[in-house]
Structures are given as C-alpha cells and as structure tokens.
C-alpha cells in the first residue's frame, strides 16, 4: 500500500503542504502509478493554465505597459504604479472599499454574533426556516438585489413612502443620489447581503461547542453575557476568522452591486470602488495598462489578507492540536 510513497516526498514549505505530507505519510494512497494521476489532472489543468494562470501573469506584465488594449503596448516600467499613488480617484476608491468593510464585515459579524447569542441557548423549532430565509440574500443575483434596493431607495419608493406615512417627510430623499447618504445606502445593502452568511456560520460553530462548558460557567455563576463572552465567543474563533475573510474579500471585490445601485459609483465618485475603476479605465477609457496596475494592487490585497488569515487559522489549529495532545 505504501508502494508510491517514495515517489514524491517533497519539502513541505507551507501549512497546506505540511498537512498534505502528513496525510500522505500516515495513510497511504491506494494507487501507485503517478502517471495516471497526471492523466486525470491534465484536462482540467490545461483549461486552468490557459484561462486563469497565464492571464494572471498577463495582467502583471501589462501593468508595466502603456497600452490602449488595441495598439501595440509600450513598456513604461513602474510609471503606472507611480501614477496610482497620485491618482485621487484610486485613493477615493480604496477609501470607499475600506468604508464598505464596516458594512460588509464589521456590522454583519456583530449582527451575526448577536443573533447567534440569542439562538444558542435552548433548542429552537423552525431553525431551518430561519436559516433558509436569512441566507437567501447570499444566494440571489447581486444584480437583482441591486435593482430591488434601487427601487426601495427611490424618491417615490417604499422607504420614502413609509417615512412620509409616519410624518417624517422631511427625511425622504433619493438616498442613492444623495452625496452624503449614498455611501451609507450602498453599505446598508452590503450588510443586508452578508449578515445571514455570518449568522449561519456562527450557528453551525456554536452547535459544536461542548454543552459542559456552559454548565461549568453556570456553576461559577456566569450570567448570560459572561457565558457568551467567555464560552461562545472563544468557541467561535475559527468561524469569526472565516466570516472575516469572506466578507472582507467581498467588500474589496464588490462590483455588480455598485454597478447597478449607483450606476458605477455615483453620485460624483461617492461610491466608486476599485473594481469599478479597473473596468472604467480598461474598457471605457482604453487604458488597459493602467487598469491592469489597479487590478494587480487589488489582487495583492485580497491574496495577502487571505494568506494572513489562513496562517492565523493554521496557528489556531496547531495550538488546539497541542492542547489536545
């Protein structure tokens, strides 16, 4: 059964590699003819290389060129990146992405924790219905979500009608066209999409927390808040990390929602985000090289955040394993 083990003992540099190697050393793989593996892998890998891997390097390469997308590109070194540092639109977009992190990440995680704290004690009936309903915004097309909320926020839309009906007519306004309120309005939609995801993640996590920990906390006289603070919250560390990385990436990547809600970042540049900027520079202003540079920065931030959180998670797991041993 260990016939194939000497075939590929590699230095494991990453946690992924380490875990993989550990798995492989422990249990053996059933098949000993590696060339077959390449055959199974080849068709998918070929598509992946041509349509993902090569383009990634292509984007990186183009970011050093002045290129319209049509004419032959001219090498300009780091000029695109230098321009980025002075581009007010770019910093505005990055700033807006950072602002949306509050609504995409922070608020949904807090709401999710709050709802989880409500639901963890005692068995609730109809959990499936709540779970299915609360998760719904996560599953539906962001374009439709955008269209629905554009209608809800419209000057003669339901939200303003409701304000008028309760005597707050002075508050009624075209929310998405308002210089001050548009970023908040877009943010609210983001929170609405993300909190169900956080909640579902946390509930799944909370269900695996040992009931005895709560009993122990009660014996020591912990009240509901203390139980949440010292049992539920630490127990959900992994899930909070995952929710953080998912929603954070969503905040950085957001495109379709903004594209539909404020017709690409308006009013002015109040809701402009990085991905919209990539699109506009590349396909509306024919500055593909510059668009590529923005895309590279955006991708680097996403990969960096993912890797850091994965590391944190791996360290967590290692520590847990150490405790168990």
């Amino acid at each position: 059964m260990t016939g194939g083990t000497e075939a590929g003992l590699k230095p494991a540099s990453s946690t992924l590699g380490t875990r993989l190697a550990a798995r492989l050393r422990g249990g053996g793989r059933p098949f000993a003819r590696p060339y077959q593996a390449y055959l199974f892998l080849l068709p998918g890998l070929a598509v992946y290389v041509v349509f993902v891997l090569i383009p990634i390097f292509g984007t990186f390469r183009y970011s050093f060129f002045d290129w319209t997308g049509f004419s032959p590109p001219t090498f300009i070194g780091l000029a695109n990146y230098v321009e980025l540092t002075r581009d007010a639109d770019f910093w505005k977009a990055i700033g807006n992405n950072a602002f949306f992190v509050i609504f995409y990440t922070l608020i949904p995680i807090l709401l999710g924790l709050f709802l989880t704290s409500l639901m963890t004690r005692g068995r609730l009936r109809g959990l499936v219905i709540f779970r299915t309903g609360l998760f719904l915004p996560q599953v539906m097309s962001p374009v439709v979500v955008g269209i629905i909320w554009r209608w809800l926020f419209a000057l003669d839309g339901p939200i303003n009608e409701l304000l008028r009906a309760v005597g707050l007519a002075a508050w009624a306004r075209p929310w998405l066209g308002d210089f001050t309120f548009a970023p908040y309005a877009v943010g609210v939609v983001g929170s609405w999409v993300q909190y169900g995801l956080c909640m579902v993640l946390f509930i799944a996590g909370a269900q695996s927390i040992d009931e005895e920990l709560y009993d122990a906390a009660r014996v020591f006289g912990a009240n509901a808040w203390q139980q949440f603070r010292h049992v539920t919250l630490p127990g959900l560390r992994q899930q909070i990390l995952v929710a953080f990385v998912l929603t954070f990436i969503a905040a950085l990547r957001v495109f379709d929602l903004v594209f539909v809600l404020t017709r690409s970042g308006g009013p002015g540049k109040q809701t402009l985000v990085t991905s919209i900027l990539v699109y506009q520079q590349t396909f509306n202003r024919n500055r593909a090289g510059y668009g590529a540079a923005i895309a590279v920065v955006m991708t680097l931030i996403i990969v960096l955040v993912s890797v850091v959180v994965l590391r944190l998670q791996a360290r967590d797991e290692a520590r847990d394993a150490a405790i168990t041993v």
Binding site: L16, V52, P55, I56, G58, Y62, A295, T299, V303
Partner: peptide, 20 residues
C-alpha cells in the same frame, strides 16, 4: 497553484482574457 484560482477575482485576469 490551483489554490490561487480560489482567491483571484475576475478583474485580475480579465484584460489578458479579452486579448486571448
């Protein structure tokens, strides 16, 4: 290498893709 594909957004590949 395949893990990279889980992280990159379409923005990171779209310009060369259009060319290809």
């Amino acid at each position: 290498i395949i893990l990279l594909g889980l992280m990159v957004p379409f923005e990171a590949v779209i310009i060369p893709l259009w060319q290809i």
